[in-house]
Simulated scan of single mutants.
Amino acid sequence: GVDMWRNIFAGGALWLAIYGTLVLNFCDFARSSPCRKTIRVGNFWGLPVNILVFAMITVVLCGAQFQINGQIIDSPTQIVAAIPSTPLLVLGCLAFLIVTVAVNIMANFVAPAFVLSNLAPRHLNFKRAGLISATLAVLILPWNLYNSPLVIVYFLSGLGALLGPLYGVIMADYWLLRKGCINVPQLYSEDPAGAYHYTKGINLRAVAAFLPAALLAIVLALVPNFHSVAPFSWLIGAGIAAAVYLLIAPRHRQYFDVSGECIAVDHSSH
């Protein structure tokens, strides 16, 4: 009934909170791609195809186990632990370990390493920043967060409440206002009169759009009375932040060459 479909869409919304981290720092992975085709092909096979195949395997395994003894599989570790052969059990544990390390390197290591190294480039290179982020990841004992399904929902909802507004502001600014037209050299300029310097290097309009959207999304995500909409905090925060930013952000005049390529953006309205 209604509750089943709400739970299905709530699970999908929580997945957005997880993959929202990769969306926001996708440039960390795409910066070394030789062409757009490489990015499209990699995303196609690595995301929708890969996820759908593993989702189908999960459904089949859970359904088969339930048909056998009425037990519902909650974790991949239960599948590994049920392997009766010791050699196959070792291989299963090794595969589980490799997958865990690979996923965490891509999803949870690269982004904070780049962020920390960019915050203090004189003192931190990628290696040092990576060691710091890895140490912090261990110190917060994240495995304790996943001991309870309720904690998982609250954690991902809170994460989505913060990441969603960021996504909304970025997408509204890049796609809706600038139409994908960016003055690339100005992105790397530290000139106070530069196009993207704003106010002492901070886009105050973006901050003004982010804060109320994030605050409302956090309330919806963490207050128990709103538990029915908590998983959708990412979508709610993104939508509100995008709408507010479109209302308060200045408009830009863009200039294109004869081939239709954007050659400049006039930010004089700043």
Rank of each mutant, 00 (worst) to 15 (best):
L24F: 03
A195W: 07
F155A: 14
C93K: 06
L215N: 00
P165G: 00
I83H: 01
A230Q: 06
P34Q: 14
S32R: 15
N203Q: 04
F114M: 13
V101C: 08
P165D: 03
G12Y: 13
L159Q: 09
V90A: 15
S268V: 07
I73S: 02
D28M: 03
R128C: 06
L47G: 03
A161I: 06
Y196C: 05
P121R: 07
A137Q: 08
L94A: 13
S117G: 04
F126I: 15
W234Y: 15
Q65R: 11
P34A: 13
K200P: 01
A82I: 05
G11E: 08
S228C: 10
V99D: 00
W175V: 15
A82H: 00
I79D: 01
P149T: 01
H270C: 07
R40V: 14
R253L: 13
G239M: 04
Q254L: 14
A242E: 00
G158E: 05
V229K: 04
L116G: 02
G11S: 12
G180T: 09
A64C: 06
D3G: 05
V151S: 14
G260T: 03
V151F: 10
D257Q: 05
C35R: 12
L47Y: 11
V80N: 07
H270D: 09
P224H: 03
A249M: 06
I152G: 04
A213G: 09
S33Q: 14
N25F: 12
A64E: 07
F66M: 09
G20R: 00
R40K: 13
I8A: 11
P224T: 06
F155K: 00
D74S: 15
V184W: 12
T38Y: 13
A64Y: 11
T100D: 07
I39N: 07
L94R: 00
H197A: 13
Y174K: 01
V60H: 02
I182D: 03
G42N: 07
P76I: 05
A193Y: 13
H227M: 08
D28I: 04
L176M: 14
L116E: 03
V223S: 05
V184H: 08
Q254K: 14
P224S: 04
V103K: 01
L139N: 02
Y188V: 08
L215M: 13
W234A: 01
V258G: 13
L162T: 08
Q186A: 15
I8M: 13
L216M: 11
G92I: 00
A137D: 11
M106H: 11
P112R: 09
R205E: 03
S268I: 07
G160Q: 03
G237A: 04
V90G: 05
A195R: 11
N125T: 04
F226E: 05
H227G: 05
A217N: 09
A209C: 03
F54K: 03
G237P: 05
H123Y: 14
T77F: 14
V103E: 01
G201N: 10
P142H: 05
S133R: 04
D173W: 00
P212E: 01
I263M: 12
N125P: 02
D3S: 12
G168I: 01
A214Y: 09
A107Q: 11
F54Y: 10
V258C: 12
N108V: 01
C27R: 12
P212T: 03
Q67M: 13
A30K: 09
R251E: 06
A64T: 08
